[in-house]
């Protein structure tokens, strides 16, 4: 379940893609894999990449993970920014 967190002075950062921080060599390989992925960008019919991220939900700050919602239908929406007009 999403874990509530108490915000400190620092701006809460993204939890990141699950799989986590790796050694430099591994990171490099991951980055190469991502670059390759961007070129193909054929995500359809494939597993949604899992990630953790902080969120604001009903008055609380929580950390959550996409895979916690597997088992339900999910609409994952990205948008350019808060206070954009449309």
């Amino acid at each position: 379940m999403p874990q509530e967190f108490k915000p400190g002075c620092a701006r809460p950062t993204t939890g990141g893609v699950v799989g986590g921080e790796k050694t430099q060599k591994e990171t490099l390989q991951t980055e190469q894999a991502i670059k390759k992925e961007e070129k193909t960008m054929l995500l359809i019919g494939r597993k949604a990449p899992d990630f953790t991220a902080p969120a604001y939900h009903k008055g609380k700050f929580v950390n959550l993970q996409l895979s916690e919602y597997f088992g339900k239908w999910i609409l994952l929406c990205f948008y350019p920014g808060d206070f954009t007009f449309v």
Partner: peptide
């Protein structure tokens, strides 16, 4: 920034 991407993910975690 992120563009207006919208993904439908089924209960198995597959992007439909």
């Amino acid at each position: 920034v992120e563009t207006r991407g919208r993904f439908i993910i089924d209960p198995d975690g597959i992007i439909q």
